[in-house]
Design a protein around this nucleic acid. Structure first.
Lengths: 212, 212
DNA sequence: TTGACATTGAAACAATTGTTTGATACAAAC
DNA sequence: GTTTGTATCAAACAATTGTTTCAATGTCAA
């Protein structure tokens, strides 16, 4: 095994373990000792490969989060019946499915949403990249699609609120797992998750007010 | 001014400033030096009055968060047209109004939701109290009300998901302020907030599927 | 006024944090 | 085989953390 490979392996392991821990506990709670121990490498390796802890965090978003959301977007686009002029129902369904049962594994999805929810709660510099590179463009794309799809033309603000509401539910049911389980007594088993997807799609569609 | 008053003042100030800071930054990021400085008292006062930092956090929930959610609940009950057998629309409207334009000031509300969202994201022992004392009972009450109010009797699970979805939106639009502003470019001014209340009520009602 | 008690204050404490250092191991280039 | 450069390692670093200590202060009861 070449030296280059070994270095890459360490770097990749660090990114993987760091993302998992950051998503689970948040940036400040996780220690570099925790990450390096999980990655099975030396304490100094984070500073060697990434400069400092903050840069590692940024790099997690750049090399893990962004590619993943691009995969989701691709899945969404491919799920649409036709490239332009779909029904609102088709758009919402493709959207919810892409995020909830798209290309991500269950563990991946949980990591993905927990990470971004922490950023939404307390935005850091990482959020700037995410907003400008992914969120704002995707948001514009969606409003454009929905505007031409909705029968009665709603205002820009109404469209915006509708999309935000759909994302609100997708985010909520993913990041509030533990709480929902404790409040309702319902476990997040395969059954319940499938039920959730159906519910979110149905609730969102009705919420749009175009399902009738 | 008596000694007792002064002591109470310090304790109250500590609780106020602690809640504001915990809501803003989260438990681990906030330092006891930050809190005591904001409260204008000595570094040791937290340990003197509350034993340790963790107890202060618990006490914030007991003496600030719980009373506030009881006020909201009272507001909700009083807003209902009649004590039993209301329409789903009336229930949802009273619910959303109680949380979004109820007895809480705007700043209070933001603190309130940011605090509980952090607990939902990463539950501590404080969450146990909240779940058993407030959430689960309120949840049961709501399902009971809605069950008898809904025309077609939906399953327990369906009712549960509907209520969770409403809370998902209430929580989301309160805690994701900064993110929403950055994504959409829309400020959280009086206008927008009023618009939000209307939207959440409408979206939720449609989502319930009983507005037709 | 005196003594007991509760609160505040400044300083120090031990533990943990992210980061830096210099030695070591090792693969590729000459 | 020597040199060069990179990655890893144990150890130490300076800074910050929550907590403790003990003297000083002020209040109320006797």
């Amino acid at each position: 095994m070449g030296k280059k490979d070994k270095m890459d392996m360490t770097k990749e392991r660090l990114l993987d373990e760091a993302e998992a821990l950051f998503a689970q506990k948040g940036f400040d709670v996780v220690t570099v000792r925790e990450i390096t121990a999980a990655a099975g490498c030396n304490l100094a390796s984070i500073n060697y490969h990434f400069g400092n802890k903050q840069n590692l965090y940024i790099e997690v978003f750049r090399s893990r989060w962004l590619p993943r959301v691009r995969r989701i977007h691709e899945f969404f686009t491919n799920s649409l019946p036709s490239q332009n002029s779909c029904s609102p129902a088709a758009i919402v369904q493709a959207l919810a499915r892409a995020f909830l049962e798209g290309p991500l594994s269950d563990e991946e999805r949980q990591r993905h949403f927990r990470l971004i929810v922490k950023e939404i709660a307390n935005p850091t510099t990482a959020f700037d990249h995410v907003v400008t590179e992914v969120m704002r463009p995707f948001f514009k794309e969606l409003t454009g699609m929905l505007r031409s799809a909705m029968p009665d033309d709603q205002g820009e603000e109404q469209l915006m609120l509708n999309i935000l509401s759909i994302f609100a539910m997708v985010l909520h049911f993913n990041f509030a797992r533990a709480a929902i389980t404790r409040i309702t007594g319902r476990e997040y088993d395969t059954d319940f998750k499938a039920r959730l997807v159906d519910h979110i799609i149905k609730f969102s569609l009705e919420g749009l007010g175009t399902s009738k």
